[in-house]
């Protein structure tokens, strides 16, 4: 069971939260100019990091707000919690 520190509500059990997948995937600024390969990369391709992963969570059964988490996908240790739109305070690392 993960203990996740919601930036607004404090530490709560993971089953209050929903996982939002990889963070920092930017929607194309000019969608009509994108090639099929660029769309595939945006829509489907994932880093799937083995190591420190930057990911999004939402406090579904709480304040309902989104935030970013830096979590190790091997040890499940959470190294940082930071706001949406903020630059990650730690660098993602590992394979995948």
């Amino acid at each position: 069971m993960l203990l996740i520190h919601c930036p607004w509500c404090g530490p709560r059990n993971e089953d209050e939260f929903s996982y939002g997948g990889e963070a920092h995937i930017v929607r194309p600024a000019a969608p009509e100019a994108e090639s099929d390969a660029q769309w595939a990369d945006y829509l489907f391709m994932r880093t799937n990091r083995k190591g420190l992963n930057l990911e999004r969570w939402v406090h579904t059964h709480g304040c309902g707000r989104w935030f970013n988490v830096a979590r190790d996908t091997v040890t499940h240790r959470i190294e940082a919690v930071y706001g949406m739109g903020e630059a990650p305070p730690v660098q993602s690392r590992g394979g995948g």
Partner: peptide, 13 residues
């Protein structure tokens, strides 16, 4: 389990 992981273990919920 909903979140991605390489740990070969999951959560009790």
């Amino acid at each position: 389990d909903a979140y991605h992981s390489y740990a070969q273990r999951g959560s009790l919920p």
